[in-house]
Design a protein around this nucleic acid. Structure first.
Length: 954
RNA sequence: GCGGGGGUAGCCGAGCAUGGACAAAGGCGCAGGACUUAAGAUCCUGUUCCGUAGGGAUACGAGGGUUCAAAUCCCUCCCCCCGCACCA
């Protein structure tokens, strides 16, 4: 058999699909079913890998299946460029950061010859070039994967036309009153004077930097009415147990003016505060020389804010001037650091300060003391103090209760009261908020990362109840697969609150109400599916014409075509054609994506649709597939275990990859890409292809109905039953089951059939099934199906039909030939299989070489009883049987029937056996006796219906 | 902590919603056989234990319960994974 060149076949059909515009979606004038399917547009910061490919591949399979179901399918694609990552990459490359440059060299090398790489990399200093390069390559990748996309609708999110569309979206939201302004903390680089995200931070991808809210508490200097030492804490509820303050004598402190107060904080903290408090003035008044250090304050007294007790300021080396305010208040009963530091002072200076216990917790008396003793911690330099702190914090938070020292808060669990204490302190004007990064971090450029508070951040406010109600209603009316995500989505809608929707930096659309802000990248990707329906038509229009009124008219039917024509110079026909396209394709019938999108992209997608579009424009369904891992491990750049999508064709073949995606796991499970399994599947897949080819190459003729044997009918029954099941499952997105059915299970049936009949006959009967089989397989492995489909047609000498209809991709689902689905035929075969199995079992156990095998079917009276008791509960069976036939053998028989657990089915056993006698002889290589009188070992009596007695003679 | 998902034979992985034909699909691996000069591929057989007649025992994280019957339902416990945002 000739070796197939899969790569050639892939390219050939991709070319023909494109030439014939097979997947260009046009609206149909006559009434028909349409199906609008979207998957997320890829972010173009680099090449996609086989993990990303899963989602797109499954999306494509759904699109192809829907076409087979007779839907007019629109499956478009665009590219996402908005946001900071691409910009960060371009900046890094422009700076010549070797690590990034090296990575992008690798990326570009996937697609380009070596000599071109440097030139392309050089162009990457410009973000636009990065975006364009990868958008182009990903488009090629997608074509190479055989995706049935209408490429005329491709766009990217920085195009002016898209900007106009996004502006319109924000105007609609603004009109609904959900675009609001407020304060918001962000990670920020002083050096770069701009906000920084994960991509801008050194190791930000592997060691995330989050924003932590500290509470600052003011401690008034005992002899100074307007000057405060400001301590920062993560546990404001412990204020009741404060015994002293800690200052690092080696650090430097400054006095800053906040409103009418002087605050004393570390020099580092003062700088950070400057970015967080609007009213802050840094007097930068040095309180001590560098030589004197923080020792200036040591021994001074301050007043704690709750009861006004005077407490001392003491030195501690564990205090870090660059964390919090550089001032820490001490709660030695509950904080291991504080306890140990006081112990150090007691040993060195003889200073005695008694801990104040404020939290009762089972299993501890003085928690800090005990955990240190248990862990053997003796010095404030001990690194395990962090761990000890964590343990105590966790225990106290979940199990601890504030005691009588805590006033009104006594008797309440920490977990429940923590925020109330904080608010109470804030209300007393002794506490404030201070944000700190979760770890010390620098930007990729080396600038220090701090937290800044934007004073005029714009938000989308998802809290209005009208909006949440609509969101819930929308979700209620939708289908989700896997279904569990529906309830989950409802929870997400409840949890959704404020979301900052613009940022200072990044690519994207300018915020229409304040042009120096850029709309953030998830907020601009919420209703873009609507744009797909008309984008190819918008290209013919001047961008300026795409104003609010234009989109109002097209998307919402607001306004009047005539007036709009006057304003925009777009003729009414064009306007209405565009509007008609949108109205034809919308809503989005299915959005297929991955679960990580649920709590961000998808919820915005749903909420924005709910807010902007009338109900008839609301999305209909969401399907989600889990991720893909490789050899049991997550795929990631840093692990170096990614396989680029661009390599799939070369390494595995596209159809094999697609088949693997479909069959390896259900949507809800992770796909594990294992070479071993891929190899196994490749063998299966090749065998399937060979099966088809053999039938074509030998010119095997279809079996005529009048020559069908029992095994023929059996196979046809199996085939059409599986076909029917598979269509149902495919329709329910159970692609794995459908695929396993139509590949693995059917192959097994065919193998069995061949064993039963012959290779020659198998070639012929495959011919009977081939067309129907190829159609149902074509969404999964389209290229090879096209190839075989066409070869089959040519071999049969069928004339060319209308050009488009030639393609298997454009067929409609085969009709199920119900007349071939035959329970009886299948039961008869099962009967035979189990008989042969039993006989083999006996031969094995008894270690006999058969001379002759005697088969005894159940006598008629047994069948009668079998029929009579089939629906009775077990306990009544014997009684009922005895009514019919009073004999001890009846009891034995019924017991055997019950034990066998055989389901009732009417078969004429002896007729089957007579018919298959020859086959049985062939199987066992000996004589077969059917219902002979000869029964030397008295086996006959063991026969029960559907399970004949067997006697083997050597 | 909250929310979600899991724990099935040497491994991967179905089944569990609607309990029964489940010693538990399928694949991998392993062993034996056929084919082959040979290897590979392919095909057949086996792969918990016991058994010279189609049988029996034990088993689906652990323990209990419901039931004539539990991998499947209920309870308790143990263990593992993922998300908790403003980031695409």
């Amino acid at each position: 058999m000739a070796e197939l060149n899969f790569k050639e076949i892939e390219e050939k059909w991709q070319r023909r699909w494109e030439e014939n515009k097979v997947f260009d979606a046009e609206i149909e004038k006559e009434e028909g079913k349409k199906f609008f399917l979207t998957v997320p547009y890829p972010y173009t910061s680099g090449p996609l890998h086989i993990g990303h490919g899963r989602t797109y591949t499954l999306g494509d399979m759904i699109a192809r299946f829907k076409r087979l179901q007779g839907y007019n399918v629109l499956f478009p694609m665009a590219f996402h460029v908005t946001g900071t990552p691409i910009l960060a990459i371009a900046d890094s490359i422009a700076r010549g950061e070797e690590e990034v440059v090296e990575r992008y060299r690798d990326y570009v090398s996937i697609y380009e010859d070596e000599e071109k790489v440097e030139k392309i990399i050089n162009s990457f200093g410009n973000a636009e070039n990065v975006a364009d390069f990868f958008a182009d390559r990903i488009s090629e990748d997608f074509k190479r994967m055989g995706y049935s996309i209408d490429w005329r609708r491709k766009f990217n999110t920085t195009e002016p036309m898209y900007n106009k569309f996004i502006e319109w979206q924000f105007k609609k939201l603004y009109d609904k009153g959900v675009i609001k302004k407020g304060k918001y903390p962000i990670t920020y680089s002083i050096e770069d004077d701009s906000a920084v995200g994960e991509d801008d931070i050194e190791e930000g991808d592997i060691n995330k930097v989050s924003i932590i809210e500290h509470t600052t508490i003011k401690f008034k200097l005992a002899n100074d009415s307007e000057t405060y030492l400001i301590a920062a804490t993560l546990r404001p509820e412990t204020i009741f147990g404060v015994t002293n303050l800690w200052i690092n004598p080696a650090a430097r402190y400054v006095k800053v003016r906040v409103g009418k107060e002087n605050w004393i904080v570390s020099r580092e903290a003062a700088e950070k505060l400057g970015y967080q408090k609007e009213e802050l003035q840094i007097t930068n008044y040095k309180l001590q020389t560098e030589e004197a250090g923080g020792g200036f304050f040591i021994g001074k007294k301050v007043k704690e804010p709750v009861e006004g007790r005077e407490i001392p300021v003491l030195p501690a080396s564990f205090v870090d001037a660059d964390v919090g305010t550089g001032v820490v208040y001490s709660v030695p009963a509950h904080a291991p650091y504080d306890y140990i530091a006081l112990e150090d002072l007691r040993r060195e200076k003889g200073l005695e300060i008694a801990p104040i216990k404020i939290i009762d917790i089972e299993g501890y008396d003085l928690p800090a003391k005990e955990i240190c003793e248990r862990m053997g911690i003796e010095s404030q330099e001990d690194e395990r103090l962090d761990e000890a702190t964590q343990i105590i914090y966790k225990d106290e938070f979940y199990r601890g209760v504030l005691n009588e020292k805590c006033g009104d808060f006594a008797g309440i669990e920490i977990a429940a009261i923590k925020d109330e204490v904080k608010d109470w302190l804030k209300g007393k004007k002794v506490a404030d908020v201070f944000y700190e990064t979760s770890r010390k971090a620098v930007t990729r450029g080396g600038g220090k990362v701090i937290v800044a508070v934007l004073q005029n951040q714009w938000f989308i406010d998802y809290t209005p109840s009208w909006w949440k109600d609509m969101g819930h209603k929308l979700v209620e009316g939708m289908a989700f697969y896997p279904e569990k995500y529906k309830a989950y989505m409802q929870d997400i809608i409840d949890w959704l609150a404020l979301r900052p929707c613009v940022r200072k930096r990044g690519l994207g659309t300018r915020f229409p109400y304040e042009k120096d802000w850029i709309i953030e990248s998830l907020s601009d990707s919420t209703i873009y599916m609507a744009l797909y329906t008309i984008v190819h038509l918008l290209r013919q229009l001047p961008v300026d014409a795409l104003d609010e009124k234009f989109f109002d008219y097209v998307f919402l039917g607001i306004g009047d075509a005539g007036e709009l024509t006057k304003e925009t110079n777009i003729d009414a026909d064009t306007l209405n054609r565009i509007k008609g396209e949108f109205e034809y394709w919308y809503p989005n019938d299915l959005r297929h994506t991955a679960p990580p999108h649920l709590s961000n992209h998808l919820v915005f997608f749903l909420m924005h649709h709910a807010a902007i579009f009338p109900e008839r424009g609301w999305p209909r369904a969401i399907t989600l597939n889990e991720l893909m891992i490789r050899e049991g491990r997550k795929m990631s750049k840093s692990k170096g275990n990614v396989i680029p999508l661009a390599k799939v064709s070369e390494l595995y073949g596209v159809d094999l990859y697609r088949l693997y995606c479909a069959i390896n796991a259900d949507f809800g499970s992770v796909v594990n890409w294992r070479e071993q399994d891929v190899d196994a599947l490749r063998r299966r897949f090749n065998a399937l292809v060979e099966l088809f080819e053999q039938s074509i190459d030998t010119g095997a003729e279809e079996l005529r109905e009048d020559e069908l044997t029992h095994p023929d009918r059996w196979l046809l029954s199996k085939f059409y039953r599986k076909l029917r099941d598979s269509i149902e499952r495919f329709d329910a997105f159970k692609m794995r089951e459908a695929g396993i059915n139509m590949v693995f299970n059917l192959m097994n049936d065919i193998r069995y059939y061949e064993h039963r009949e012959s290779e020659e006959r198998r070639k012929r009967i495959v011919r009977n099934l081939m067309d129907d089989w190829l159609i149902i397989l074509s969404p999964i492995v389209p290229h090879i199906c096209e190839e075989i489909w066409h070869r089959n047609r040519e071999e049969k000498g069928e004339g060319r039909r209308e050009r488009k209809l030639e393609f298997v991709s454009l067929q409609t689902l085969p009709e199920i030939k119900e007349e071939f689905i035959d329970d009886r035929v299948e039961r008869e075969e099962e009967y035979l299989v189990s008989l042969i199995g039993d006989t083999k079992e006996i031969l094995k156990i008894a270690r006999i070489k058969p001379g002759k095998i005697y088969i005894y079917t159940a006598e008629e009276w047994k069948w009668e009883i079998f029929r009579a008791i089939r629906d009775l509960p077990d306990k009544d069976k014997i009684k009922e049987a005895m009514k019919l036939r009073k004999d001890k053998s009846t009891v034995d028989f019924v017991k055997r029937v019950m034990k066998s657990k055989l389901a009732y089915f009417e078969l004429n056993e002896s007729e089957i056996l007579e018919r298959e006698k020859e086959y049985l002889m062939r199987e066992f290589g000996c004589e077969i006796g059917i219902n002979a009188e000869y029964d030397p070992k008295g086996k006959k009596k063991f026969a029960i219906p559907l399970k004949p007695a067997i006697y083997v003679e050597e």
